[in-house]
Write a protein that binds this DNA or RNA. Structure first.
Lengths: 333, 333
DNA sequence: TTGCGAAATGACAACGTTGTCATTTCGTTA
DNA sequence: TAACGAAATGACAACGTTGTCATTTCGCAA
């Protein structure tokens, strides 16, 4: 007849030692004589003892868990979670996760309120769209909070891909290859990624005194890229297209081809995320890739680093990488 | 000067009531006079009180958290996590997550050991590959354990996509459209999904007395599908190809086209996961889609249902759906 | 053998909640 | 006004750990 929960006390009695000795066997084994340790280990084994998380945390005043709030859970999120989880593991933390429900409107304050009732020492918000209380939000003073977002926050640390820099890099790549202008196909309007990529594109052109043409509105999927491509095919001055992701870039390329234009001979194209090679054999698309995994790692490290000083504040940008293939033609000389 | 942690006792003193009354305001507000409740609420507000998770769990003997172990974190996992998280939310649970580290070899026993030190009332293992101790593993008696895997387990509840059934369904679709045989392009060898899809393909053919041809080995990516397509293009009896995912199916289609064959006029193709439309404009690929989100929801519900009776055992299969487009030709009549 | 300092072990309180049971207060009726 | 039952509140123990400090045991030198 099993007792419901085996406590240290039960183990102590079974092993004929004191409660405290059992505790020591677990937390500072070297301070216990080997023969005693063995007795205790046998007793633990026999009774199936497992330390009680609640009691331990209560006494220690910390949990060893980092909270993760997913305001948005999309494709790239997997790698980010992967990075967060690996880094957490490495530093001896587990993750406690909650998610914004579909349709529900969650503010930062609401997320913080819910998280602070859970076993967490610090938290990470993954925020890919704007929220109402972004600027006014104040994190709990005793709970280090890191926000993954391209926007700067007045009081919290933030971590982000350098989306803007990535877009700028792609544009400059075009311009350095002799292109005189770059067209842009955006993602969904409300997406911060799309907004930042657009901003970087604008900035890069303006820095060279080029008036950015009207951007084409897409929705991340190939069909919207195709539609944009049909429009672009008719613009004689269009030699370079930057699409806010690879799927739309592929759509653009297909439309150009269907219109009798060749990539890269007639038009050059760059995308984002470098994932087309998975789906398209012999893919030629040059693409800006973000290191989502690294992003997760940085976010977690920032939280852990801030556990002692929750009010510290920093801003981390993880740069992107231009993966060169052959979809950009060199127009020079 | 803030005290580090504000306890119920602090609130009680500030509000001029007893500790227990504060507890009641939180847990059974109706048993407290309104005027008292207001006093307590003000005090909580003023001091910034938040209930202490550890103390509460210790007293209650439960955590309100479900553990999730990701042995594998890949694309489809996002939707599954999404389902798990939404269902958890709905039932008032949070998630505690740990992950197998890259390279590390984690057994079920090891995962269970680590989880049982964390704040969890039950757990879900997401297992997409074989693991050494699968058959011998016994879950902790007091911790309901559900494994997401296509294999049956002797003692734990399992939940899975019906991969085998999905593959069978696709094959029968071919056969019912007058095809006399179906070729198969597999994913990575060690993947259970790939193995199950292959098994279903074999079974469907054998059920009609057809000898399955040698399957072609792929690795999930388009290039491997392309290579397979080149081989298949030379087989005169090849009218139907089932590829273990959409990316490889696309590779197959591109190879066929490059060899001068048309889909579906010369060869029909079906894929898995229904995700090609995101990347390919006007995609024609018919595909078997699994409801990963639903899978997550079922897994969570199974855990919660089993919290009272951890030793209960069930097996859930979530059926797939054939998303029809135009990549299969009807050869009848 | 005795004495001593160091090592090993133990007794007890405390962490912040909730459950049990006793006590006080309230509103109503006699 | 007194008496009563119900509602509201409170005192105290308990959950299973770890920290503090006291006590016991050990190994070794005198």
């Amino acid at each position: 007849m099993d007792k419901k929960n085996v406590s240290m006390n039960d183990v102590a009695v079974a092993a004929g030692v004191s409660l405290k000795t059992v505790s020591r066997v677990i937390n500072e084994p070297n301070s216990v004589r080997e023969s005693t340790r063995d007795k205790v280990h046998s007793a633990m084994e026999a009774l199936g003892f497992r330390t009680n998380f609640a009691a331990r945390s209560l006494k220690l005043g910390r949990y060893g868990c980092i909270g993760v709030v997913m305001f948005h859970l999309s494709g790239g999120a997997v790698d980010m979670i992967d990075g967060i989880a690996d880094a957490a593991e490495e530093r001896g933390f587990a993750l406690t996760m909650i998610k914004k429900r579909a349709g529900e409107k969650m503010t930062l304050a609401e997320a913080a309120r819910r998280m602070s009732q859970l076993p967490v020492d610090g938290m990470i918000f993954n925020l890919r769209q704007m929220v109402d209380d972004f600027d006014t939000f104040e994190a709990p003073k005793d709970l280090k909070t890191v926000i993954i977002t391209p926007m700067e926050h007045p009081t919290c640390s933030t971590v982000s891909d350098d989306q803007e820099g990535g877009a700028r890099m792609a544009c400059e790549y075009f311009l350095n290859h002799g292109h005189k202008n770059v067209y842009f196909v955006s993602g969904k309007k409300e997406s911060l990624s799309s907004q930042c990529r657009m901003k970087g594109w604008r900035a890069a052109l303006e820095a060279r005194g080029i008036e950015p043409p009207e951007p084409l509105q897409g929705d991340w999927n190939a069909d919207s890229g195709y539609a944009a491509g049909l429009v672009l095919a008719d613009k004689p001055d269009c030699t370079a297209v930057l699409a806010a992701n690879d799927c739309m870039a592929n759509g653009v390329m297909m439309a150009l081809r269907d219109k009798g234009l060749s990539v890269p001979n007639d038009v050059s194209v760059i995308g984002f995320d470098d994932e087309l090679y998975k789906t398209i054999p012999n893919s030629i698309l040059t693409s800006v890739k973000f290191r989502h995994r690294e992003l997760g790692v940085r976010a977690l490290n920032e939280v852990v680093a801030g556990l002692e000083a929750p009010s510290s504040r920093s801003r981390t940008l993880v740069s992107g990488v231009l993966v060169e293939r052959s979809s950009v033609k060199d127009l020079r000389a």
